[in-house]
């Protein structure tokens, strides 16, 4: 199975972007940090293999770890996205509640 972690993260972030509106920075900033950190790790990993500090077997094993680390990133971004959705939904409910209360006061 071909799984491109960068592509999945980009698609995920793109899908979130369409839905979070003004809260986009809350998602974009950590996503950028995740991408930058992975880039740094992959560069170091390649360096360690080239300099023979690690074996091919360990290199492969660490590449597998990258999938788990990416999964952790997706979970973190999922929490941020849900938090934004929760905040927006509750803000809408608050407005509705206030409107009903105002209408009630007017009626009285």
């Amino acid at each position: 199975m071909n799984f491109d972690i960068n592509e999945v993260l980009f698609q995920m972030v793109g899908a979130i972007k369409q839905n979070v509106g003004e809260n986009w920075d809350e998602v974009r900033n950590p996503a950028n940090v995740f991408l930058q950190n992975r880039k740094e790790r992959l560069a170091l990993l390649a360096e360690l293999l080239i300099s023979k500090e690690i074996t091919q077997e360990r290199f492969d094993s660490r590449m597998e770890d990258e999938k788990l680390i990416a999964e952790a990133h997706f979970h973190a971004i999922a929490v941020i996205s849900k938090a934004i959705a929760q905040r927006a939904a509750n803000a809408a409910i608050d407005i509705f509640q206030k409107a009903v209360k105002t209408a009630l006061n007017v009626a009285n």
Binding site: E26, P30, V33, F34, N37, R38, E40, R41, L44, L45, E47, L48, S51, E53, I54, R62, D65, I69, A72, H73, H75, A76, I77, V79, I80, K82, A83, I84, Q86, R87
Partner: peptide
């Protein structure tokens, strides 16, 4: 090199944990 790599991996996982907590605070 492996110490550095382990440290970077752990640092990133803890950053993910903090981002998740930040999300809860944001909500």
């Amino acid at each position: 090199g492996l110490i550095k790599l382990n440290m970077l991996a752990m640092s990133d996982l803890f950053y993910a944990m903090l981002i998740a907590e930040k999300g809860k605070e944001l909500a």
